[in-house]
Amino acid sequence: MRIVILFLAIFLSLLIKPAVAKAQTIDTSSAIILSYQRIDEETYTDTNTQLDQFLSQIDILQDEGFKIIGLPILVNAIKTKTPLPKKSVVITFDAGYASTEPALIKLLEKDIPFTLFLSLGAVSRDSAQYLSIESLKRMHSKFSNVTFALTAYNYARLNNEEAIRASINDSKTIYRKIFKEEPQYFAYPFGEYNDLYQTIVKEQHFEAAVAMHSSPAYSGSDLFALPRYAMSEEFANPDRFRLIINTKPLPVKAISPTNPALSSTTPSFGFTVQDPQYTKQIRCYISGQGEVPLTILDNNRVEIRLSESLNDNRVRLNCTAPTKDNKYLWFGRLFTLQQDALPELQE
């Protein structure tokens, strides 16, 4: 519910535009990564998208000139600093739920590329909730525009190095057995990671990893924490969808805290805007608190001091700035509170 309230606050505020900068120096070689989990599973409203909503979104992408590309194309473009097609979009699915099969079939029929981040511990147990190994093998052998990748939900908390390594290694072993190749891409479970988790993933020789914070991916993105917009039926209306797919990156640096796992319920957030012309137009939102006041230093440093403590394990920071063409630059981060930071939520 906090995520719903946060987005509504952002969406409504974007209807009232502040003055835009006179010049625009936007990184136009960017891509929107969309993350889906379940299709037509009404019990799971936070992660479910109705099939008709999903198909409507695909129609919007195709009818309005968007180019749906595979994740490998995006990763290669970031690595080599090469341009992407205008209005690029990447479609991903997390976990490998069986309910996604009707959506996958539609994409295959339309020859649209997508990526499956598979929770192979669950898939290998032959659960009816997940796509079968045989169906995955068939897709792998027949469709070259499907990227098979890895996620690992059976992990402890973020600071349990042994559990993280064991979870990834077990999943990689199953992946090799099914697909006869090495996995190249990884999705952090629920988008949650910290410095330790990211270091372990890098050591495992993945090409890239995706998280779950809202932002476009671009040449300055961290290849081992690529942003994605989480899709669900609550946010599936066409206006909201068009808002997302038309966003452009808001390039920032010197982000603090650097570690997305927080040790305090009253952290200080901050970042430096690479193009100062946008600084005065930025508006930022914290999940559970709505729009928050900003302190601007040296014309390009944005600092956020919370007036109240955080009260949830997952904390989203989203910052936007308007452009001349009625679109928005977007910078987001997903933070998690460590176990000892919110003991009352661990009971």
Rank of each mutant, 00 (worst) to 15 (best):
E134P: 07
P189D: 06
F190E: 12
K137N: 12
R138D: 12
S135W: 13
I164H: 03
Y153F: 04
S135P: 04
N159A: 11
I174Q: 04
P183D: 09
T173F: 03
S124I: 00
D126F: 02
I174W: 01
K137D: 13
N154Y: 00
R157T: 15
S127M: 05
K172I: 04
L136C: 14
K172A: 02
N145S: 15
K172W: 00
N169S: 10
P183G: 09
Q198W: 02
L131R: 08
Y130S: 13
I200M: 06
Y188H: 10
I168K: 00
K142R: 14
E161W: 00
A163F: 03
Q129A: 12
Y153M: 05
S127Y: 02
D126N: 04
I164Q: 07
E161Q: 03
K177H: 11
I133E: 06
E134V: 14
K180N: 12
Y188C: 10
I168G: 02
I200C: 05
Y188M: 13
L136Q: 07
Y185P: 07
E162A: 08
S171G: 08
R138L: 14
Q184G: 13
I200D: 02
D195K: 07
S144W: 02
L150G: 02
A128F: 01
F148D: 10
L196F: 00
V123Y: 00
S132R: 05
I174G: 04
F143W: 08
K137E: 15
R125V: 03
K142H: 13
K137T: 15
P189T: 13
E192A: 02
Y188L: 14
Y188T: 11
Y185I: 02
Q198D: 07
R176D: 05
I178M: 01
K172Y: 00
A156E: 06
F143S: 11
T147P: 13
S141T: 11
G191Q: 02
I200H: 01
E162M: 07
V146G: 06
Q198K: 09
N145W: 11
Q198V: 06
